[in-house]
């Protein structure tokens, strides 16, 4: 069914839950789909950007995520959580992008992607803060970003999903297709590795933020 705008008596899509919106999307509602895209666009950009460390390319991949959601909308099962399905698509596209870039650069290990990754994104500072404090905060954020990029992929993906995207363990299990015990173990190891990388910053840097 092609994408169409229903002009007559449109429901207030922004108030509907994801699953109800998807029912409208399956029937071809452009407004319902636009509401879904608007609801999740920042979260998807954030997720993909953390995975591939390239904000511009993350925009394109995020568009691809929503395109695939639309194209494969009839595969969505209403008894499943929409966001989990969407995150699965986003994670897989992001991982494919990582592999594509590794191949194109001739890098043997995925973990060496950091060497071929582009910009890590510019941070939006709070304009109400004093300049020196804002500078310090940006430095801390860049430091954390770099440490995150240095994590092995399997650790980075769980920590992004858990500590940045705030997904539950069960959702991460479903998105990544790995058992719950593995999810917990990887999250713990990822945090511990990150803690070692951050070193002095963890010792007392947080108090200065």
């Amino acid at each position: 069914m092609p994408l169409t705008e229903k002009k007559s008596n449109p429901p207030v899509f922004s108030a509907l839950p994801d699953e109800a919106l998807m029912e409208h999307v399956v029937r071809g509602s452009e407004a319902a789909f636009a509401a879904l895209v608007d609801r999740y666009r920042n979260r998807i950009i954030n997720l993909v950007s953390r995975f591939i460390s390239d904000r511009d390319r993350a925009q394109e991949i995020a568009q691809e995520v929503f395109l695939r959601i639309y194209v494969h909308r009839e595969r969505y099962r209403p008894n499943g959580k929409f966001s989990t399905w969407m995150y699965t698509i986003a994670v897989n596209l992001a991982k494919n992008e990582i592999r594509r870039r590794v191949r194109s650069k001739g890098v043997v290990s995925l973990d060496k992607l950091i060497e071929v990754a582009g910009d890590s994104g510019k941070f939006v500072a709070d304009p109400t803060q004093k300049p020196d404090r804002r500078l310090h905060q940006r430095e801390v954020q860049e430091y954390v970003e770099e440490a995150l990029k240095r994590l092995p992929e399997k650790f980075r993906e769980v920590i992004v999903l858990r500590d940045i995207q705030q997904l539950s363990y069960e959702e991460i299990e479903e998105v990544l297709g790995i058992p719950g015990g593995t999810v917990r173990s990887r999250i713990n190891r990822a945090r511990t590795s990150l803690q070692e990388m951050l070193g002095d910053l963890v010792e007392g840097g947080i108090d200065e933020l």
Binding site: E30, V37, R41, I45, A62, V71, V140, V144
Partner: peptide
């Protein structure tokens, strides 16, 4: 503290025009 530092990372955002771009790609 380590986990707290992750929470301090700024969120990447998109412009509202992003929605229109997605719809254009679908069309």
């Amino acid at each position: 503290t380590t986990v707290g530092l992750l929470h301090c990372l700024p969120e990447e955002t998109t412009q509202p025009a992003f929605v229109g771009q997605v719809l254009d790609r679908i069309r």
